[in-house]
Structures are given as C-alpha cells and as structure tokens.
Amino acid sequence: MVDIHSGICGSHMNGHVLSKKILGAEAKIDDDEWVKNRLEHLSLIKEKRLTSVCHGQLYQRRMARAYNKKVRPRNLEVGQLVLRCIRPHQVEAKGKFSPNWQGPFVVKKVLPNGALYLIDIEGKMAEMAINADVVKRYYV
C-alpha cells in the first residue's frame, strides 16, 4: 500500500487510477485485462440503472392505479342544479359564520376539460367558467 500511494502523484490520483494500481499490484494483471474488467463493471452499472428505472415506473403505475380507484368522476349535465363553493379569497367569504356554498345555479354549458358555465336562477350568466371541482349537485 505504501508503494501504491507513494510516487509523483501520491494521493492526488482519481479513483480509477488508484483502483488500477491496486488491482495491478495485487493481481499482477496487465492493462488489457484491467480494461476488460472495467468495461464489465460499467455494463453492470447500466443494467442496474435500467432495472431501477423499470422498478420506478412500475411503482408509479401502481400508485396511480390505487389513486384512480378511489376517484369518483362527476358527470354534470346541462340543466342540472349545482351549488358553488365559496373560497376564502373571494369577496363573498366574510367571517366565520358565513355560508360555505352559494347558489343554486343551473349548468349552462359543460366544457370537455372539466370547466362549467353557470347561470343563476334569474338567468344571469356568470362572468367566467369555473372548475367542476368547486361545485356539487343540488337536490331539490
């Protein structure tokens, strides 16, 4: 070990050179064999990386399947009555005892991306589309 760490470079050599010197000193192998062994080790690293990527993808699919199993789709149709949630950042949210839902509204148009256009009972249309996640069905 003293012979390996001594010399011009000393301890300032990188890991590959140091491992080559150690392998050469212990096993007395030539450069061709060392290169062949090194390439075999590098190919094993690629295989391990690929297997870890595959396991990661399988884990993500399992988690997505478990999550999507519990999701209930909301099938809202034109003409249905809904209540709209009042968020804390809206003007209507005033105080602790204010209502959490506003409405009822009638669904005027359902967009394919999950957005809705609503009109109130008097027929006045809302100024913009809202997400279907902030409404719930209103049963009379």
Rank of each mutant, 00 (worst) to 15 (best):
L58N: 12
Q90C: 11
A66S: 14
A129M: 01
M63P: 02
P104L: 06
N68Q: 09
V78D: 03
E33I: 13
G56Q: 07
N100M: 05
V140S: 12
G95W: 03
V110L: 08
S98E: 06
V134P: 02
K136I: 04
L50A: 14
V78N: 05
D31I: 06
I29R: 01
V107T: 04
N131D: 04
S19I: 06
S11W: 15
R72C: 10
L44K: 13
D32A: 15
V107K: 04
L116A: 01
K48S: 06
K109Q: 15
S6D: 07
P99N: 07
H89K: 02
W34H: 13
L81E: 07
E26W: 11
K70I: 08
I29E: 06
D32W: 10
I121Q: 01
G103W: 01
W101N: 02
E47W: 07
K109G: 10
I45Y: 08
S43R: 11
L83H: 10
P88W: 02
K70L: 09
R62Y: 02
N68T: 11
M13Y: 06
N75F: 04
D31N: 12
M1N: 11
P112M: 05
N100K: 00
A132Q: 01
W34C: 12
C54W: 12
R62S: 14
Q90Y: 10
A126F: 02
D32Q: 15
G56C: 05
N37R: 08
S52F: 07
D3Y: 11
D120M: 00
Y138W: 15
E122A: 06
A25V: 06
C54H: 13
K136H: 03
A66Q: 14
L116D: 03
D3C: 06
G95P: 01
V2D: 00
G114P: 01
H55V: 09
C54T: 13
L118K: 06
K108V: 05
V110H: 04
P88G: 03
L39Q: 07
D3I: 11
G114L: 04
D3R: 13
P112Q: 05
C9I: 12
V82W: 05
K94E: 14
D30K: 09
W101K: 00
D120A: 01
G95C: 00
S19R: 08
A126Q: 01
E26R: 12
G123N: 04
H5V: 11
G103K: 00
R137N: 10
N131V: 05
E127Q: 13
R74C: 13
L83K: 07
E26H: 13
I119T: 13
W101E: 03
L39E: 09
D133H: 07
H16S: 11
V91I: 08
M125C: 07
P99M: 10
L58D: 08
N113Q: 14
G123E: 03
V91L: 12
L116S: 00
K94V: 09
A25Q: 06
R84G: 02
P99G: 07
E122R: 01
H5G: 15
K20P: 03
M63I: 15
V78T: 08
I86A: 02
R84A: 02
V82E: 00
Y59F: 09
Y59N: 12
I130M: 13
I130V: 15
V134M: 09
R137S: 12
K48H: 09
Q102F: 01
